[in-house]
């Protein structure tokens, strides 16, 4: 029974790992690099939080 559990684990690894690689490939080919890397640090703070000098 334990041996079958290890097979199940390997199968899950291949399945989920494969899905992630597939999704990664799909996203990278669907969107432009500029869109994907458009996140900037502190952008929301700059608008919503004002600091007094």
């Amino acid at each position: 029974m334990w041996v079958y559990l290890t097979y199940l684990c390997w199968a899950v690894c291949v399945g989920l790992g494969g899905w992630m690689l597939f999704d990664w490939y799909k996203i990278d080919t669907t969107y432009s690099e500029d869109t994907l890397t458009s996140s900037r640090e502190g952008e929301i703070e700059a608008v919503s939080e004002k600091h007094k000098v």
């Binding site: 334990w2 041996v3 559990l5 290890t6 097979y7 684990c9 390997w10 899950v12 690894c13 989920l16 790992g17 899905w19 992630m20 999704d23």
Partner: peptide, 26 residues
């Protein structure tokens, strides 16, 4: 938990935990 004589090693469980959690994080 499986006891000493089940003849399995931990690699499959180690790999499964890492991959499943990476998937959830993804």
């Amino acid at each position: 938990k499986s006891g000493g004589d089940s003849g399995i090693n931990h690699n499959s469980f180690v790999a499964a935990s890492i991959i499943i959690l990476a998937f959830l994080n993804y």
